[in-house]
Amino acid sequence: MAKITRQGSNAILSTSVEYHNFVYLAGITADDLSKDITGQTEEVIAKIDQALENNGTDKSRLLSAQIWLKDIRDRDAMNKVWVKWLGEEGRPARACVEANMADPRHLVEIMITACR
């Protein structure tokens, strides 16, 4: 039976799960909720970079991304940060939708699947 590795587990989730060299990240949000969409997206992306590194991979190995925005009108501002971060490394399959957030101060949440 293949090993499943979980990191950052609590009563309801793990921040990452690795199985057969696939890395699944939980939805990641910003900690500083006073930031605007640009600041929150930058913080989320930094947290994604760290989570990927903790799992032995990086943004060049992205497979898919799900992005939730509190207000879809923030899509262009979020995409400016997203495109700058992605560079030419490897663009994932992606969805980006408007959603009610668990905390209304969260402006963006991103969930990633990558491989090692």
Results as ranks from 00 to 15, higher is better:
M1W: 07
K3L: 13
K3R: 14
T5Y: 00
Q7K: 15
Q7E: 05
Q7H: 05
Q7W: 00
G8T: 05
G8E: 00
G8P: 03
S9D: 04
N10G: 05
I12A: 13
S16V: 13
S16C: 10
V17L: 12
H20I: 09
H20M: 15
H20Q: 15
N21W: 06
N21D: 15
F22A: 10
V23T: 15
A26Q: 12
G27A: 15
I28D: 04
I28Q: 06
I28V: 15
T29M: 14
T29H: 02
A30W: 01
D32Q: 02
D32R: 06
L33C: 01
S34G: 05
I37K: 00
T38K: 08
G39R: 00
G39N: 02
G39L: 04
T41K: 02
E42T: 07
E42F: 00
E42H: 05
I45F: 15
A46Q: 05
K47G: 08
K47N: 07
I48P: 04
Q50C: 06
A51Y: 02
A51T: 05
L52D: 01
L52W: 05
E53R: 01
N55L: 02
G56N: 02
T57S: 05
K59S: 03
S60V: 05
S60G: 09
L63C: 10
S64H: 07
S64G: 07
I67W: 03
W68F: 15
W68T: 11
K70I: 14
D71C: 06
R73Q: 13
D76Y: 11
D76A: 15
M78R: 12
N79M: 15
N79V: 12
N79F: 13
W82E: 04
W82L: 14
K84H: 13
G87N: 06
G87R: 09
E89D: 10
R91N: 06
R91Y: 08
R91A: 10
R91T: 14
A93L: 11
A93G: 07
R94V: 08
A95Y: 11
E98L: 11
E98F: 10
A102P: 07
P104A: 14
H106P: 00
H106R: 06
L107M: 03
L107H: 02
V108D: 00
V108I: 03
E109N: 02
M111A: 12
I112N: 00
T113C: 10
A114H: 01
C115L: 11
R116T: 11
